[in-house]
Each structure stands twice: as structure tokens, then as C-alpha cells.
């Protein structure tokens, strides 16, 4: 019986990593497009990149890194059987994620307000290339934001299960895998941040 549990634990771990690999390649397609269009339109990308709000970007980076820390700590906490602490840490992770999304909302609204969106009159008139930057920016951060939202849902379910006692020091693979997913969301952002907010 113990051996079977151990097998399932290792299997679940392998399974979630394989899933994360697919996520890496899903975003990989967008990074591929970014790389090719950056090489085709370096000047236009630089001009468009200067319109980005560095403040929002940096704040969101810090938020995600911090939420990742909380998620990692929650795994340590469950391993040590500190259930109260697990719940607090998961709550903190979720709050960070929510603030991230609120930030994102204000950032997008401001940008759209300035006329930066696909097919906008501003881009139809302007030089080609700048619009590509913003299209990619919206698609990449939009897809990422969707993953943040999914992560919030997932972590909420996990928190409820911890409270019900379904996840505990003896069986916490679901919590661990959800944390892994959450770290991946952070990882993707670690690359989005410099590529869209900094290099240009």
C-alpha cells in the first residue's frame, strides 16, 4: 500500500511537470514570434516599448515573485503539518495574484485609452511594426493573465481542500503540484517583464 502511494506521488509529480512543459511551449510560440518580429522591426519595437508603464511592470514582477515565495512556503508548511500557516500562505498568494490582475486592468485601460490597441486609428496611420509590438503584448499578457486567473481558481480549490482536511502532511501532492503550476506562471512573467518592459 505504501509503495502504491509512493508510485502515485511520483507519477503525479511527473505528470504535472509534463503539463508544465506543454505550457512552456504554448508561450514559446509567442516568444518565437516576438523574437522574429523584434529582429525585423528593432526600431519600431523600441519606440513602442517606450510607451510601456515600467512602474506597473515592476510592481507586478515583485508581486508575482512574492506570491511565488508564499506558494513555496506553503509547501514547506504542509510538509511540516502547519495547517493554519498553509491557509494563511495560500491566502496571501491569492491576494497577490488578485492585486496583479487589478494592476493589469488599470495598465491595459490606460494603454487602450491612449489608443494603443490592435486595429486602432493610431496604428492604422502610424508606421508598421509598432502595432505588432502591442498586438504581441496584449496576446502574451492576456494569455498570461488568463493563467493567473486559472491559478487563483486552482489555489482556492486547494485551500478549501486543506481546510476540509483532504490535504495534509501525509498527502499533499495536489498542493505541491498547484504550487508548481503557480511558479510556472511566475516563470513566464520573469521573461515577459524584460522583453516587453525593459529591453527596448
Amino acid at each position: 500500500m505504501i509503495r502504491k502511494m509512493e508510485k502515485e506521488y511520483a507519477g503525479a509529480k511527473l505528470g504535472i511537470w509534463l503539463f508544465l512543459f506543454t505550457e512552456i511551449l504554448l508561450f514559446g510560440g509567442l516568444f518565437l514570434l516576438y523574437a522574429t518580429y523584434l529582429s525585423s522591426y528593432p526600431r519600431e519595437f523600441a519606440i513602442a516599448g517606450r510607451e510601456m508603464h515600467l512602474g506597473f511592470g515592476t510592481a507586478n514582477t515583485i508581486l508575482l515573485i512574492t506570491s511565488s515565495l508564499f506558494a513555496a512556503m506553503s509547501v514547506t508548511a504542509v510538509q511540516q503539518g502547519e495547517i493554519r500557516k498553509v491557509l494563511n500562505l495560500l491566502g496571501a498568494t491569492i491576494i497577490c495574484a488578485m492585486i496583479f490582475l487589478v494592476n493589469k486592468y488599470f495598465e491595459w485601460s490606460s494603454e487602450i485609452g491612449h489608443g494603443f490597441y490592435p486595429d486602432s486609428p493610431r496604428f492604422s496611420a502610424g508606421p508598421i511594426g509598432e502595432a505588432l509590438f502591442f498586438s504581441l503584448y496584449y496576446l502574451t499578457t492576456g494569455l498570461h493573465g488568463f493563467h493567473v486567473l486559472a491559478g487563483v481558481g486552482l489555489l482556492t480549490v486547494v485551500a478549501l481542500k486543506v481546510r476540509r482536511g483532504a490535504i495534509h502532511a501525509g498527502d499533499y501532492v495536489l498542493l505541491e503540484n498547484s504550487a508548481l503550476y503557480w511558479h510556472l506562471v511566475d516563470l513566464i512573467w520573469i521573461f515577459i517583464f524584460p522583453l516587453y518592459y525593459l529591453v527596448l
Binding site: 513555496a72 511558479h183 511566475d186 516563470l187 520573469i190 521573461f191 524584460p194 522583453l195 525593459l198
Partner: peptide, 21 residues
């Protein structure tokens, strides 16, 4: 610029993968 920023991002990713994950 590009490569420097990416190098730092890779270092950050390494830390997240190695320890948080």
C-alpha cells in the same frame, strides 16, 4: 541590452526552478 536582460531573466528562472520548484 537584449542579451543582458535575458541573461538576468535566466538567472531568476534558474533560482525559481531550482528552489521554489
Amino acid at each position: 541590452h537584449v542579451w543582458g536582460s535575458l541573461a538576468i531573466a535566466v538567472m531568476k528562472a534558474f533560482l525559481v526552478i531550482a528552489f521554489f520548484m
